[in-house]
Nucleic acid binder design. Sequence first.
DNA 1: TGCCAGGCCGGGT
DNA 2: ACCCGGCATGGC
Length: 201
Amino acid sequence: MFDALGPQRWWPGETPFEVVIGAILTQNTNWSNVEKAIRNLKAAGRLSPEGIHELNVTELAQLIRPSGFFNVKARRVKTFINWLFSRYEGSLSKMFAQDLAILRDDLLSVKGIGPETADSILLYAGNFPTFVVDAYTHRIFSRHGFIPEESTYDEMKSFFEGNLPKDVKLYNEYHALLVNIGKMFCKPKKICEPCPLRDFL
DNA sequence: TGCCAGGCCGGGT
DNA sequence: ACCCGGCATGGC
């Protein structure tokens, strides 16, 4: 895949905090919509833990409106920020100073942060070696018979971590390539025949 | 035009 | 323990 597509410049966030917020906003959402929401936050001078902490949920919801599901996401972002302040004094650096396994469980305890969002935060903002599974990963590998269709998130994560060297750069690039390839060739109700991905896998 | 997007939660069975 | 609807904007 890498030979065919090259490096993906994945998650072009300027700061770890921007990546974290993007990870929540992009839940089941096109990235171009998320970019608009991030631009709004930036333009309003609110793209920081303190900046968001001082907003109420309604104000935040208006700023992130283009990202869709803005009411739920505003609550999720606020919940995360409140948690960040109560647990890590509002500091991502302190948060990322935790051990991987502990921090992952910690993140999963925050309402609105599921396994993919947690792993995205850990890998793309914190540079931890944790593999990110998403809908494309599942679709591509189950359709090709590498994993059962009914695999759980953690089963798939273990599958990839068990078959790949534990390497942050590799995990980063691999997930990015899967998503971008999936966008082109692996839609939910359009099964390509023959599948162009055969050669990659 | 309908389909799709880098999920997750909560309620009903 | 599953299954399923709700959440909502924007691009093609």
